[in-house]
Design a protein around this nucleic acid. Structure first.
Lengths: 226, 226
DNA sequence: ATCGAGATGTGATATAAATCACATTATAAA
DNA sequence: TTTATAATGTGATTTATATCACATCTCGAT
């Protein structure tokens, strides 16, 4: 990793792209690139954090302990920063991040990151844009999740996985049914039933974690109606 | 309003506080201060937006049309920016904002706002901090809302109103029961029943919209347990 | 003061989904 | 391979809450 260079990294964030050569040099000296395997905890709710995390490759889940069980807040796909709000303040993490696939993460010292914001308006702007986009996405889901019922939310997630993460109708589902339940806010059993139901209605096909979307139209209808 | 001056405004945002005299001068020429009455729509989902909104005084609800009905996403108390994510991109608003009390709002041209971010790192930093804090709050609620049941969520909201907005055990509840239902994600009838129940158990007292919290301890217990 | 619309209270009923319980099947570790 | 542990499928039952229905009640507008 030591011979790796941020400036020539093909996975640069849009914020990093606007850095000057001097800034790249400082960045190179103050970041660490780490590989995580599926299931590895990247940072933990309750722990102190001094580094901003950037997802260079892979997929990560952001999750926290809810009143009764774990809640998955969002799935992050590379390339993207993740957990800026919880790591940035240099205080205790309000949520955790865990790799759900093999990932590479770059950690950047929070103070340096803060300095870039102070010194480089374009960098700050890109960070703001990313934070804003996230809020918009979160709010959309938030509204959905409190009004749709279980089949609608599961259908929504399947379509979302297909469109935004794998860009294919056929993919290897990266979550267990139990995790999917924590993500959409139901019980594991309900997820299982809905999936069986979709399958017997020929909307999807799945063996193990291999999922194929067979009837996207009907799935979308179910997702929209709720 | 014309003789009003941003630099001496007692309701400045923490971001605005770091502006230079020159920047204040530009700001004064490019902002409009508007008063809204209770119930007035401030900006609307689906409309184009070219101004960032700053809540100078009052309380606002952020809401959007969900799959089946209206969803209230958050309640914003002055002083605070609101809707930066949806207004800033200069595109179509993803959600609406409505005054739930008499409010004064300052509109700032998005381009000017963007310029401040580019030119003034401290300003950008303060905006980032605000966006981050919001995300943290939203995630907390998000987890709660998918795991707590109705009495827990109503109790949580009452305590939140009391602690964060009115700083008193006795306050004039600014939402209708129907709105409270849209906020916590239930039906109007369920809210009514829970409130009646709290009242008959002497946890709260209410006539009309006047609410008094009588037994905060038990209310907090209900909120935590769900 | 009167009117009417919106807000609220409350019972009866329907229903989605949680929970419980257990069988079956993968998956990783020894 | 064997073994253990986690993941999944599916029925039976319970439960919280939505929905429907209707009776007040409140408050602003005339």
């Amino acid at each position: 990793m030591t011979n790796h260079n941020c400036k020539t990294c093909p996975f640069k964030s849009s914020a990093t792209k606007v850095l000057s050569d001097d800034e790249f040099e400082i960045l190179d000296k103050n970041r660490a690139m780490v590989t995580f395997k599926k299931g590895d905890l990247i940072f933990k709710q309750g722990a102190l954090s001094t580094n901003v995390a950037y997802l260079r490759t892979g997929i990560v889940k952001i999750h926290m302990q809810g009143p009764s069980k774990e809640k998955i807040l969002r799935i992050v796909k590379a390339p993207s920063y993740f957990g800026i709000p919880t790591t940035f303040g240099n205080k205790i993490n309000k949520y955790s991040a865990t790799a759900i696939e093999e990932t590479t993460v770059c950690f950047i010292d929070s103070n340096l990151f803060r300095n870039f914001i102070f010194k480089n308006g374009k960098f700050a702007y890109e960070i703001i844009v990313e934070l804003c986009e996230n809020e918009l996405q979160d709010y959309e889901r938030y509204a959905n999740q409190s009004q749709k019922q279980v089949p609608g939310m599961v259908a929504e997630r399947l379509i979302c996985m297909s469109d935004n993460i794998f860009n294919s109708n056929h993919f290897n589902f990266p979550l267990t049914q139990s995790e999917l339940a924590d993500l959409v806010g139901t019980s594991r059993e309900s997820v299982s039933r809905v999936l069986s139901d979709f399958s017997s209605n020929k909307l999807i096909e799945f063996k193990g974690k291999e999922i194929t979307i067979l009837n996207r139209d009907v799935l979308e209808q179910i997702s929209e109606k709720g």
